[in-house]
Design a protein around this nucleic acid. Structure first.
Lengths: 347, 347
DNA sequence: TTGTAGGCGTTATCAT
DNA sequence: ATGATAACGCCTACAA
């Protein structure tokens, strides 16, 4: 809680001008003698250049803003770690906003970014509106969108294909003997919600299975648990023997609900999540999940950003991360029970 | 990516002086006419005051730095949410640093905070050194420590009593019939590691049970899984029938390891975690855990901070959050199966 | 090599 | 009520 010294005081103590102080401290050449005295004075006073003054002069804050929907979702902390990693040694600080679900707030946030507290923005919006897209395109600072901002919008983007991700999951389940595969989607009003729904419906057509979609009202564990109740209530002769969930949190909720209801996992019910968050492998049974490379997308976003800052004029670019299915215990193949000799038996 | 307008341009367009612009926009009284023209000009140009310019003038950045060990640990994202909540409507932004384990880096970070990119610092260090304490005490900005910074150090602090937390856990396990309770601690070189170890040893004295400590080399799931192997290798006639873990991540690792090894949870092994992170209730079996009120501690830290900013001169203050045991499935009581009337048998 | 001086965008003081 | 101007702390032409 001590007041901080400025260049002026360092200069006085060293007996030189403030220009010399600044020069020495930013590594420009100076006479040996001056350099020594400046360094001595600076370290005696504990001088550290003020970030604000420098930012004002240089027009850059050394800060990157990161806006995600919900920091409580591990997929976003993983993305955040990716961004940090991608920013690497640039010394940039990360200003994190958990923007929540309100689209207007998000737009206001992006506009307010004009306030210049960050040199750039990495944003991963769950929803988009024309206003948001407009705000992103006209942002005063470079923007990288992780997610879906629409085709042809001139903004750097890191995309993945969660539609294809759901296809992977569905094929895997069909291939391992599941025949009634329900889909617990997140809110259909979100971009991932729409894309994943599409993938599911496409997979149903491909496989000839009847689509059964339950829509959760958020991408959370609680919403997943709630959705499970509706899956369990689906009518029909046979119960659903598999669930694809819109993300890992929903999948955890479904598993929790199913286990509480006495279902055997994975024997009676297979579950597949999306995002492959760090807890997927830890859960019991461990959760088969479609990795969308959150950490890698974060890293790529940071790289795109650094590249953009280096060449502001270049055209917008889109990089893609392919979904990858991580098979674990929660989707173990159906084993056929033996009745007659020659067949296999379930344990 | 458009350049941002400044007060000067707004003033020109409105036909007034920059002083009037600033006045109107900060809500001071002005002639109706001037006010209208300024507002019109500002909104036409899409003017938003520059955060850096304002920060330089006002000497405050409207930013709060948050330094935690590992954002990948849900306990810290919960703390972060608490800080956000406690900051409430102040409009302060959160600059997050995942400082990692290196103590020197942490000290450098606190010193570097002198660079003035934040008005205050909330820090939750895993370890402390004299250098760190010194840096915190002499920090140029107000500091709130969430955790243990030592007695009598003049820094605002939010504490909890994880020693007592472990006692709660141990008594609970003893009370529900467990008789060989091992402790999987995090690194003993950390403050929580030391405090929790102490609590465990104290509980062993209290209960008369022999202490058995396995030290994991980090507070992570992987380290917990690894530690499980060492618990399983403990010699003795009976196996350990309970494990207290240094935090939830370690507990998850232990559960994972134990389940993979074929142990029945909670029948053959009870597990209790610490932190009560959001996934504790989701895991299967759900994890009994000692809540240390991470979110509340974050909120309290923010409040302490706001209070300190309001009255910089006041004495350092310490607020406490009491640990609370959340009993769940992973520590279900030992059930005694009946063989012969009156006799007991463990199942 | 060094010092002087101007300006980044803002707010606030002090005249008017 | 309003306008001119100084100042916040820094960097960097430009001049010496």
């Amino acid at each position: 809680m001590t007041r901080r010294p400025t260049v002026v005081e360092v200069a006085q103590l060293a007996g030189v001008s403030i220009a010399s102080v600044s020069r020495v401290l930013s590594g420009k050449s100076a006479r040996r003698d001056t350099e020594d005295r400046v360094r001595a004075a600076a370290s005696e006073l504990g001088y550290v250049p003020d970030a604000t003054g420098r930012a004002l002069k240089m027009g850059s804050t050394l800060q990157v803003a990161l806006a995600v929907d919900d920091v409580g979702n591990p997929v976003y902390t993983e993305m955040m770690q990716g961004v940090e990693q991608g920013l690497g040694g640039t010394g940039a600080r990360l200003v994190v906003s958990s923007t929540g679900h309100d689209l207007d707030d998000l737009v206001a946030y992006v506009r307010g970014l004009g306030r210049g507290h960050a040199d750039a923005l990495v944003i991963s919006p769950l929803q988009r509106s024309p206003e948001l897209v407009d705000a992103l395109v006209h942002s005063p600072v470079p923007v990288v969108v992780v997610g879906d901002v629409g085709e042809g919008v001139p903004v750097d983007t890191v995309r993945t294909d969660s539609r294809a991700g759901v296809l992977l999951a569905h094929r895997h389940l069909v291939g391992t003997g599941r025949s009634r595969i329900a889909f617990v989607n997140g809110p259909a009003g979100t971009s991932p919600g729409r894309a994943r729904r599409e993938g599911y419906l496409e997979a149903c057509v491909e496989s000839g299975l009847a689509p059964e979609v339950v829509e959760a009202d958020a991408f959370t564990v609680a919403a997943g648990e709630d959705a499970w109740a509706r899956v369990a209530a689906l009518s029909g002769r046979r119960r659903p023997d598999a669930v694809i969930a819109g993300n890992d949190l929903l999948a955890f909720g479904v598993m929790r609900g199913a286990l509480s209801a006495g279902r055997r996992l994975p024997r009676q019910l297979a579950v597949v999540g999306i995002d492959d968050t760090q807890f997927a492998r830890v859960f019991s049974p461990s959760l088969t999940s479609v990795s969308l490379g959150a950490r890698e997308r974060g890293r790529l976003a940071a790289e795109l950003l650094l590249d953009r800052l280096a060449s502001p004029g270049r055209d917008a670019r889109t990089v893609r991360v392919e979904p990858r299915l991580e098979v674990r215990e929660s989707s173990a193949p159906v084993v056929e029970a033996v009745r007659t000799p020659g067949a296999k038996r379930s344990s």
